[in-house]
Computed example of a mutant assay.
Amino acid sequence: MKCETCREALSARLDGETEPAPPEVVDRHVAGCAACRSWLSRAERLHRTLLLRPAPPVPDLTAVILERTPAPPSEGWPARIALALVAIAQLGLAFAQLLGVEDHTAGHGTESLIGHLSHESSAWNLAVGVGLGWAAFRTKAASGQLPALTGFVALLLALSAGDLVTGQVTAGRVLTHGLVVAGLLLLYVVNRQHRLRNRPSPATTADHPGSHSAETGHETGEAPERPRQHRGFRRPASRHVA
């Protein structure tokens, strides 16, 4: 038996592991090899030292860590529930408008045009209600609805104010647009809460490509090798990648 194999078996024996060689063969080698007996003696002393040495005292930092750890952001359920209720009310308004409009498909006069415009308005109200409900369920979808809904509400408020001043509509009719205004405000709140929940941690920010830690190596201080940039159009490997 070689000394390397014997010492590997002795190390496994000290650690309580399975020896790679029969124990009687290892003992017979140790009995006839002074170098391995000396190595075993030193290994046993080191093993006893490591087992009997007490752990160094350390301070209890639990309270300090908990105090400095920021509280996790809330899920924003009140705003999401309010947005869902506004979406349900908006859907109810759209269905009521659809069911209350008479069908004037026989003629092509003013009544038919008014009926068609009412159908378009109902379809838009229905789409807004579906969008608000989806944003309450999937908060990341709120940001995609903000540009279109903001432009619609801004123009709607301006036109409604002009119609109210000229007496073309009543104040009660204008107040029915309060649902979409409330939905827009709640959409901004839900979007902000979603961004706060998904804000990168300081550790992630430190590894951002624009930070110093990503520009240079943590230990060597050398700039890491940048990946090659493929010029031109790269065909995606699958529709999922696309």
Rank of each mutant, 00 (worst) to 15 (best):
L196Q: 13
R42M: 09
L61E: 13
A158L: 08
A127V: 12
T105H: 13
N198V: 00
R235S: 09
P202G: 04
H108S: 12
E67T: 15
E225M: 03
R199K: 11
V241W: 07
Q90N: 08
G151Q: 11
L51P: 02
R45W: 07
A171I: 04
L132F: 10
T220M: 06
N198D: 00
A206T: 06
A43E: 15
L10Y: 05
Q145G: 02
L14I: 15
D15R: 15
A142E: 05
R13L: 01
A136Y: 03
P209V: 15
E75A: 03
E67F: 10
G178V: 04
Q145A: 05
G178Y: 00
L157M: 06
R45Y: 09
V169S: 01
P209T: 02
L91D: 04
Q168C: 06
S213F: 08
H116M: 13
G109M: 01
R7H: 13
R234C: 14
L156E: 02
D163Y: 09
E17A: 14
S211A: 15
G151N: 09
P147V: 14
P23C: 05
F137R: 07
A87Y: 05
P70V: 06
P72G: 11
V26E: 00
E225S: 07
L164W: 13
R68S: 01
L132Y: 07
L184C: 05
V26K: 10
Q145F: 00
A106R: 12
H218N: 07
G32F: 04
P147T: 11
T205L: 15
A96W: 02
P70R: 09
V26L: 12
G217T: 01
P73L: 08
L157G: 06
E102D: 14
A34S: 13
A55H: 14
M1G: 03
V130Y: 01
A34Y: 07
V181K: 06
A206R: 14
V26P: 02
